[in-house]
């Protein structure tokens, strides 16, 4: 009872206990900032900096599974320079990224433009469009693997047994180029929802009155598209393009689940080859070197996307020039 009264009196008289060192520490702003940042910094260090650092370190050692390696400098990278399989994986990755991204953006933009109009069952169609994105990649990869199967392919069944357009079953994954194109188709299918939904969001921010103004200004449908829609969509297109290129370039699941890099290593991407060498092949150092080789490509692609179609002058603030 007395204690309560005391506290009340202290409050009334603004009496305050002298600061202890703990109070002083917590009143010190830099310390408080550091303390608040600590959890997120911890997460970044544990899940980003450490693995990246370890990968960089491994790429410069001759570590194999079960045997700690020694520092060998850039030897792993020198070996890769003379490795035709590595170079094929590089060209595969670039080809795969360029073609699949182009496909995803063409079809994704087309779908977004369709969905931006009033069409029947719009919500239903939008839900269907999202489906490939929701299904776990490995599951859809297995589905594609069945579609591409030499014996059980539904495509072969339709064309051979139902339509009789062909006598032999297709061998999608048996030779290099058909296998590469098959992977690209699967990747496009998987990537369209992201592009379509992102671009649809972008399209919906464009005021309909701009199109009405353009209509009165005498613009045709095509002129409205490339003089109004495309420039106004550029900012969001840049972000979607950057993310999509990064996802595609570092793709692993689809390829590994459908072809495992085969036939004869001809469909390996850099990511699958890195895994193949490091884990099943046990050459951790070499695998890490391949993975590290992706970094410059990724940085270059990001910069290209970002500066190529990034922020435009008209978006920026109040500057007067």
């Amino acid at each position: 009872m007395d204690a309560t009264v005391d506290v009340g009196l202290q409050r009334l008289n603004f009496v305050r206990a002298p600061d202890t060192w703990v109070t002083k520490l917590f009143d010190y702003k830099p310390f408080l900032v550091f303390l608040c940042l600590l959890p997120s910094m911890g997460l970044l260090v544990v899940f980003l900096t450490y693995p990246l650092g370890l990968g960089l370190w491994l790429s410069m050692t001759d570590t194999t599974i079960g045997q700690p390696g020694h520092f060998v400098g850039l030897e792993n990278f020198q070996e890769l320079m003379d490795d035709p399989v590595f170079w094929m994986s590089v060209t595969n990755t670039i080809f795969y990224t360029v073609v699949a991204t182009a496909g995803k953006f063409t079809l994704g933009l087309w779908l977004a433009l369709l969905l931006n109009h009033h069409i029947p069952f719009k919500a239903f169609i939008r839900a269907i469009v999202l489906l490939p994105w929701i299904v776990p990649t490995v599951l859809s990869a297995i589905a594609w693997w069945w579609i591409y199967s030499p014996q059980f392919s539904i495509v072969s069944y339709v064309f051979v047994d139902l339509l009789h357009w062909s006598d032999t079953y297709f061998n999608f994954l048996g030779s290099p180029w058909p296998a590469r194109w098959s992977l690209i188709v699967a990747n496009i299918w998987r990537g369209i929802p992201f592009v379509a939904i992102t671009l649809l969001a972008g399209l919906q921010t464009i005021s309909p009155s701009l199109y009405e103004a353009a209509l009165l200004d005498g613009a045709s449908g095509w002129q409205k598209f490339y003089r109004i829609t495309v420039p106004l969509l550029m900012p969001i297109l840049a972000v979607a393009l950057t993310l999509s290129v990064l996802f595609t370039f570092s793709d692993f699941q689809l390829v590994y689940a459908i072809t495992r890099g085969g036939p004869f290593n001809t469909t390996h991407l850099m990511a699958t080859l890195a895994f193949q060498r490091a884990i099943p092949g046990a050459q951790l150092g070499e695998g890490a070197a391949i993975a590290v080789s992706m970094i410059p490509f990724l940085i270059a692609a990001t910069l290209l996307c970002f500066f190529g179609v990034g922020r435009r002058k008209w978006q920026q603030g109040e500057a007067n020039d």
Binding site: S209, A213, L216, R312
Partner: peptide, 15 residues
């Protein structure tokens, strides 16, 4: 051969 001024002006922001 008409011209219209819109309530929200409808200026093309990128031009």
């Amino acid at each position: 051969d008409i011209a219209m001024v819109f309530q929200n002006y409808a200026l093309y922001p990128h031009m």
